[in-house]
Design a protein around this nucleic acid. Structure first.
Lengths: 223, 223
DNA sequence: GTTGGTTTCAAACGAATGTTTGAATCCTGA
DNA sequence: TCAGGATTCAAACATTCGTTTGAAACCAAC
């Protein structure tokens, strides 16, 4: 390829980290795939950890900027009024699912991101928290405003469940093939499927544990 | 401890594999934690891979037997009639969430299982498919019977999403803490929360994509 | 008490890991 | 053209990995 060594290493690392995980991916695998010398990683990035961090930051910063931009657009359109839950879900998860459909590295990265969530190394969790701080705050506020009758703790759990569904939606059909033959080639279909599921879950009737919590007992339906 | 070396190794491996993943967990970490000699793993299990397989089989077989038993009970009670989706969800995910609440190893194992789903090594995927074959077949049949109006492909995706939500529900608050302070100490509450969410997602309105054929669509979409 | 099989132990094995080194090579600006 | 920083390269660095070995320790049966 014509691209420089640094970019080739980032691309190769992204792909191999997605496929084999953070620990099982060796620098020799990466530099071989990138057609670079073994020492190039330490020359360009300093260490393996710094390379991994660069791989994540390269796309994650952009992803969360897109999320915030989408939220900004909806809020400008609404002009002070609470957004519809569907819009907030679209801004957060829709952007992610669309990036996961991008065959030019976006898909690889999103799969890597999904699997990293459940195998957090300390140093990864550290800069992941950094990268997510702002977007989390913005979306929490938007959701709380849009769903005032859903207890905040309940919503946080549902958000967490939604992240899980997203992660599996993106993770590729690896685990899916346990269920049998299935077609995962249509990103538009996946987008529509996930959206329906997420909104169904988000707006499900509240569980019974909130009855004793002295809230409004008749607010059985979310929003 | 009173337990024998073999059991101590299994317990230590389960705990450390959950915390650090399959590759980052070394035999020296395991044998130190188990207060056993390094060679004990190869003596009792033959290899690191065989140990990992033993860790999974020890509890996964039992878990899936419980799932099938729960399904059997519901089906016997229904006597040929289709089950309620809520009952099938309860039999599959409820059993899992209840095992994840068991502080005596069950929680550790379920977290390990959840994270392994998104980091499948070849040999793990192999016996995971074995262990799941029967239970998947049973539950697919039950769901198809209970939800005849949901296209099978759509349901498989929803089942996949539900697995993702379960995985995150179980995975502990590691990723959750990104969202802010939250209480994950009440297993009953978690059970109720997840059930509401799953059933809400499972019964959500179908997405718009089901007009086209299952394979390559000749006409891409209706207008 | 001695035997024979089971289990534990310290030590070492070769292979693979991330990193470092210092010389070669490339490339740009004067 | 040539000097000098940027980049590449082969080789070696010290560790750590999973596994193997052979002797020591344990333990029930006779």
């Amino acid at each position: 390829m014509e691209t420089d060594t640094r970019s080739r290493i980032l691309d190769a690392a992204e792909k191999l980290l997605m496929r084999h995980g953070l620990d099982a991916t060796t620098l020799r695998m990466i530099t071989t795939e990138a057609q670079a010398n073994l020492a190039a990683v330490n020359y360009h990035f300093g260490s393996k950890e710094a390379l991994i961090e660069a791989v994540f930051r390269r796309r994650l910063t952009w992803l969360n900027e897109q999320r915030i931009a989408a939220l900004d657009a909806f809020e400008a359109e609404a002009g002070g009024a609470p957004l519809k839950p569907r819009q907030i879900v679209e801004a957060f998860f829709g952007v992610a699912i669309r990036m996961a459909a991008d065959q030019n590295g976006g898909q690889t990265f999103m799969r890597l991101l999904g699997r990293t969530y459940t195998e957090p190394t300390d140093f990864v969790r550290k800069f992941l928290a950094e990268e997510y701080a702002e977007v989390i705050a913005r979306f929490k506020a938007a959701f709380f405003k849009a769903l005032p009758d859903v207890p905040q703790e309940e919503f946080l759990w549902r958000f967490h469940f939604m992240m899980g569904a997203l992660s599996y939606a993106i993770s590729g059909a690896d685990a899916l093939r346990l269920l049998g033959p299935i077609d995962d080639s249509d990103p538009d279909a996946l987008y529509a499927r996930l959206m329906s599921f997420l909104i169904g879950g988000l707006r499900a009737p509240l569980p019974e544990i909130h009855a004793k919590s002295a809230k409004k007992p008749r607010a059985r339906r979310a929003a």
